[in-house]
Design a protein around this nucleic acid. Structure first.
Lengths: 193, 193
DNA sequence: GCAAACCGAATGAATATTCAATTAACAAAC
DNA sequence: GTTTGTTAATTGAATATTCATTCGGTTTGC
């Protein structure tokens, strides 16, 4: 899965790049071909249609995201640190790959996503969910539906990454730390209040 | 600004509807015309091009959002209640108008948004910012850059609204209450911890 | 009567997709 | 080591479709 054929990978990366630049529409196959350094016909050797190209691009990037999350988790550490690590690694993945974030947002709010939702929960979602569930059961997090905690966690990361890259305001490391802290303080079980 | 010509309004609303259904692309002018009950040429009487139609639709909806926020704020109330009201009104606007949420997300992550960002901060953003600034200065909220608080506030609302409508999980009123509570607990100044 | 609103078929440019032909990859046979 | 055969990869011009936009003419409001 990692060492995709060079051409196929080039096509996927070019599509990502162009969608960031020109938007979801306004990215003709001819441009994808040119940017990837292949002929138009070659794309159709690897992908049935533009639609499947876009859907497979989503899968491809989603797997990268999953790998990032998996690698960031060190089971031995205390829960709060693992929480911080998770937040940080996700956030830095998005800020380091802003075109991925843009593509995700476009994809998820497009009709393409309908089919995906009908296909059931994806591994990324499940991973986050079970991590939060563990936190609740161990008493580190408030006794709240982990789905809700996931909403807050993910929302804060996406929002932060967007502001970081696109906003007029520049957020520094200290700011990111604060956001993480505020989120934790809200979600953590209150011991002495 | 409120009583737009009937036809113009119909065109805007149809565009919104179709973009939710068929996505940003895949929404031809011919369909917009049919759905709005006008001729294709009529659209060009009101809008220079498809691009300006989409940009004006964004402005149109952004003004509605602004009005919702303005109406929800009752200056006499205690700050925490105003905070809750703001959160609730924004969230229910999005859950009640899911196509607006989808459109916003599409628009903001598209190249159209570049021009908008270059045009400076918009009134909606400013309103939220000053509300949070007031909270910080009055000592109700943590002494943190209001921009950061805004990120968290907006992220939690968007994420919640998306889950509410599109997620596999159904969130009830009690769940929304909890999310609001968690957010407040994170953002509020710590009095006794 | 006049100006603005409106119509919708016609136009022309853009573009997703196809396909017949060419080239590379590579293994088996000699 | 060369030939040969076979399959997969690649090309890019041609096709058919789609779609934004135009414009000459018609209707409506005043």
């Amino acid at each position: 899965m990692e060492n995709l054929a060079d051409k196929k990978k080039a096509i996927l990366e070019s599509t990502l790049e162009l969608i960031k630049e020109n938007g979801f529409h306004g990215t003709p196959m001819s441009l994808v071909a040119k940017q990837a350094g292949v002929a138009a016909g070659t794309i159709y050797h690897y992908f049935d249609s533009k639609d499947t190209l876009i859907c497979q691009l989503f899968q491809y990037l989603r797997n990268q995201l999953l790998a990032v999350v998996r690698n960031s988790d060190v089971p031995g550490k205390p829960y709060q640190e693992r929480f911080y690590d998770l937040w940080k690694s996700l956030c830095s993945f998005y800020t380091g790959n802003p075109n991925v974030l843009v593509f995700f947002e476009q994809f998820i709010n497009s009709p393409y996503n309908k089919k995906r939702l009908e296909a059931g929960p994806d591994p990324f979602h499940q991973l986050i969910f079970s991590f939060l569930e563990e936190g609740v059961e161990s008493g580190y997090l408030r006794p709240v539906n982990p789905e809700i905690l996931g909403v807050l966690l993910h929302g804060s990361i996406v929002s932060t990454a967007k502001t970081y890259k696109f906003g007029n305001v520049q957020l520094g490391e200290a700011d990111l730390e604060q956001i993480r802290q505020i989120l934790w303080d809200g979600m953590a079980a209150k011991k002495n209040c």
